[in-house]
Simulated assay, not measured.
Amino acid sequence: MVFKSNGKTYYAPDWAKVAQSVGRPERKNCGSCHFFGGGADAVKHGDLDSSLVKPDKNLDVHMGTKESGGQDFACTRCHTTRNHHVAGRIYEKPAALERKSLLQDDLGDKIMCESCHGSQPHMSGGMFSKLNDHTDKVACQSCHIPEFARAQSTKMWWDWSKAGQLMDGKAKIKGPDGKPVFLKKKGEFVWEKDVVPEYYWFDGTMDHVTTEDAIDPTEEVWLNRPNGDRNDPNSRIMPFKVHRAMSPYDKVNKTMVIPHLFPFDKKDKTAYWKEFDWEKAIEVGMKYAGQTYSGEFGFVETTYAFPTTHMVAPRENALKCAQCHNPEGRLKDLTGFYMPGRDKYQLVDSAGWFGAGAALLAVIIHGIMRFVSGLRRKED
């Protein structure tokens, strides 16, 4: 098929050649969407950005190039596909509900670390055996992803309330790393690098706030919240990137709102990115979505949690015991259970010291008895 337009001749694609070129996607293919989610590189996911196209082993042991000592995995190595169904669904099918090993079943849903590493991933013997005791309560990612955004910064704060105006007379301001810290279209941002995750009990499911759910604007509003409990056998302590923002909401109905951002056409003057009028944009957006809007809006602090599961560091860079097992460690905010080295319970501590003292006393008595016995043998 051939057709002409604007003085140019266009030929139909060679569909046979196109079909024959189909193959497994490489990291760059998957990353064209997943690395740039949220509008730019490293905006959305702190553990997914363009640095993973060809990473060093120190950034990710699985995807790291072989030249750097990595495994050089493509995304499809873990996210296996059958009939266009891509494994790795952390929300639709909770990972924790089926923690089976897939070592013998390479076509199964590879969702969690246990799929390849099993439930006893560390070598037996010595301190490694103790590490295996953690796998029923601690997700592998919690220790093996010590920080995210290790190659470039990720967006951690987004203030929509400052959109629609200029900052220092400018519509765009870039930060030290070249990423925008202010855009008239979107507001003010904060980017961070080498970020320590936040940790929550996670059973593989999330609660989500919709425009029909009432919120409390006097508190931080979790747009999605990890579900989990320390008494739930399917829950593990999991690391998260928690993105915070100032977002518009309905002050009367106390619900989140959906603003109309993109113009429908050239004549559309209700889109926020056309006239920068929140009132019009929210009214049209909510009407288009079939939701009620009182006509009064404000801004409330919101949070959104992203499970962190990429950028797995080499074993030598995994967390050390004391980074969690101390009063100011990473898990200081996870309460409701006793954690050695972090918590102090008088009864437990007293029992421990008593046991240690009794053991020491027994050793001393045993030594004295051996010494006396040796003297007697000499006399005989």
Rank of each mutant, 00 (worst) to 15 (best):
Lys269Pro: 02
Glu279Trp: 09
Ala281Cys: 05
Gly285Arg: 05
Glu275Asp: 15
Glu279Thr: 14
Trp278Arg: 06
Ile258Ser: 12
Asn253Ala: 12
Asp277Arg: 02
Val300Met: 11
Glu283Pro: 05
Gly285Phe: 11
Gln291Tyr: 06
Val257Phe: 07
Lys266Asn: 12
Ala289Leu: 05
Tyr304Ile: 07
Phe264Asn: 13
Trp278Thr: 02
Pro263Tyr: 03
Tyr293Leu: 13
Tyr288Asp: 10
Asp265Trp: 12
Thr309Arg: 13
Ala305Ile: 09
Glu301Ile: 00
Ser294Ile: 04
Pro259His: 06
Gln291Gly: 03
Gly298Trp: 03
Glu283Cys: 06
Asn253Asp: 08
Asp268Pro: 05
Glu279Gly: 01
Gly285Leu: 12
Ala281Val: 05
Met256Gly: 01
Thr309Trp: 12
Phe297Leu: 13
Ser294Pro: 07
Lys267Asn: 14
Thr302Cys: 14
Thr255Cys: 12
Met256Trp: 00
Tyr293Trp: 14
Trp278His: 11
Thr255Tyr: 03
Gly285Lys: 08
Leu261Val: 09
Glu301His: 08
Trp278Gly: 08
Trp273Phe: 05
Lys254Val: 04
Tyr288Glu: 12
Phe297Met: 10
Phe306Trp: 14
Asp277Pro: 02
Phe306Gly: 02
Ala281Trp: 14
Asp250Gln: 07
Leu261Lys: 04
Glu301Cys: 03
Phe276Trp: 04
Lys269Leu: 02
Met256Tyr: 00
Leu261Trp: 15
Lys251Ala: 14
Gly285Val: 12
Thr255His: 15
Asp268Thr: 06
Thr270Ile: 04
Pro259Met: 09
Phe262Lys: 09
Val284Arg: 08
Gly290Val: 02
Lys267Thr: 15
Ala305Asp: 01
Ser294Lys: 01
Glu301Pro: 12
Val284Phe: 06
Gly285Gln: 09
Ile282Asp: 03
Glu283Lys: 09
Gln291Val: 14
Tyr272Thr: 02
Trp278Ile: 01
Lys251Leu: 07
Asp250Ser: 07
Phe276Leu: 00
Leu261Cys: 04
Ile258Phe: 05
Pro259Ser: 03
Gln291Ile: 13
Thr303Trp: 03
Val252Pro: 11
Pro307Glu: 04
Glu301Asn: 10
Asp268Trp: 00
Phe297Thr: 06
Pro259Glu: 10
Ala305Met: 02
Trp278Gln: 07
Lys274Val: 02
Ala289His: 07
Lys269Trp: 04
Lys266Gly: 10
Thr292Leu: 12
Glu279Ile: 03
His260Ser: 06
Val300Ser: 12
Tyr293Ala: 10
